[in-house]
Simulated scan of single mutants.
Amino acid sequence: MPGNRLGTSLKAVFATLGSFIAGNALAAEAGHPVPMQIGFQEAVTPIAAYIHWFHDDLILPIIVAICLFVAGLLLFCVFRFNDRANPTPSKMTHHTGLEVAWTILPVLVLVIIAIPSFRLLTQQLVIPKADITIKATGKQWYWSYDYPKDQNGGFEFDSVLKADSDLQPGDIHLLSVDNEVVVPVNKVVRMQVTGADVIHSWVVQSLGSRIDAVPGRLNETWFKAEREGVFYGQCSKLCGKDHAYMPIAVRVVSEPAYAAWLQDAKKKYASTGGTSYADASSTKALTR
C-alpha cells in the first residue's frame, strides 16, 4: 500500500535523523569518532575550541553565503538572459564597475578569513611556558614517547596498537594502544615530534593538535587539556603499509593521579633508560 510505504520511509528518515543526533551527542563526550557523527569531536583545549569557532562560526557561514549568492546569480542569468527573454543578444563586452567588484570583494573575504587564521596559527606555534615536555617519535608503525629526566621523568616507552584479541571492555577497535600517553589536566604540555624513518603526523583532534613527524627535524606544538578523559588520534601522513594501524591515545588525569603514574612508569619502563631535556631538544630523530 502507498500509505504503508510512505510510513516506512518516514520512519527510516526519522530513525536516520535520530542516529545523527545520538551520534553527535555521544561525540560531545567521547574523545574519538563515533558512528553517525557529522561534526567535530568535543574540544577540550583552547586551541581546539578556537578551531571549532573558526570553522563553524566564521568559515561555514561565509561558504554558505557565497554558495547561495552564486546560485542566485546563476538562476538570475538563466531566467533573465535566456533567448526567450532576450531575442536580441546584448553587445556589451565589459563592465568596469562589475570587474572591480568581483576583484575587490573576494580580496576582502580572504582578508576577513586570514586575520583569525593567522591568529590561530600563532597560537598553535608560539608555545607558552610548558609545565611538561614530551617527545614523540613516529616509527613504522607505532609511536615512542620520551619523558625527560629533568621533568621528573627519565623513561621512554613504545605505544603500539592493541590486537583485537587483547581488547578489554571499554577499549576501541583500531584506536586503543598498549601504553597511553599520560598528562595532567590544566597543564601546558609541549610536544616535541620527530620521525625515525619516514614522515608521520601526530594528530589528536580533541586536543587541536596536528604536527608532522619529520626525520632529522624536531617540530613542536602544545596543548592544555581542560577535562580529564582519554582522547584518541591517528597518524595523518601516508607512511607505509600499516599507516592505518598506528593510533595515538592521550589520557588526561588529575595531578595526584599523574604523580602516581610517573612513579609507576619509572619502574615499569626503567629498562628503556631515558634522556635528559637537552637530549629531548636535539634535532636528531630518536632511534631505537
Rank of each mutant, 00 (worst) to 15 (best):
L105K: 04
Y142P: 08
L175G: 06
P46Q: 01
H55W: 10
I21G: 05
G170R: 08
K91H: 08
G233Y: 04
V126D: 07
S282D: 04
K241G: 13
T275A: 15
P247N: 03
A85I: 12
R119Q: 15
L167C: 04
T96F: 12
K135A: 09
N86Y: 05
V109T: 08
I248Q: 00
T221R: 00
S165Q: 13
G18H: 02
G274Y: 00
A114N: 12
T8M: 14
V78W: 14
G153K: 06
L174N: 10
P61T: 07
R5C: 13
S206N: 11
V198D: 10
G153H: 02
L6S: 08
P169E: 15
L161R: 04
R227N: 14
F14Y: 02
N86P: 09
C67S: 11
Y245I: 02
M191R: 04
L125Y: 10
A22C: 04
A22W: 09
G31A: 02
A65N: 14
P148V: 00
L108C: 00
H95Q: 12
V109A: 14
Q140L: 01
C77Q: 13
F81P: 05
W141E: 11
R80P: 04
P46V: 00
L175K: 13
E220L: 02
V78Q: 14
P215H: 01
N186F: 08
V204M: 05
V64Y: 14
A43K: 06
D178C: 01
W102F: 10
T283N: 07
A257R: 07
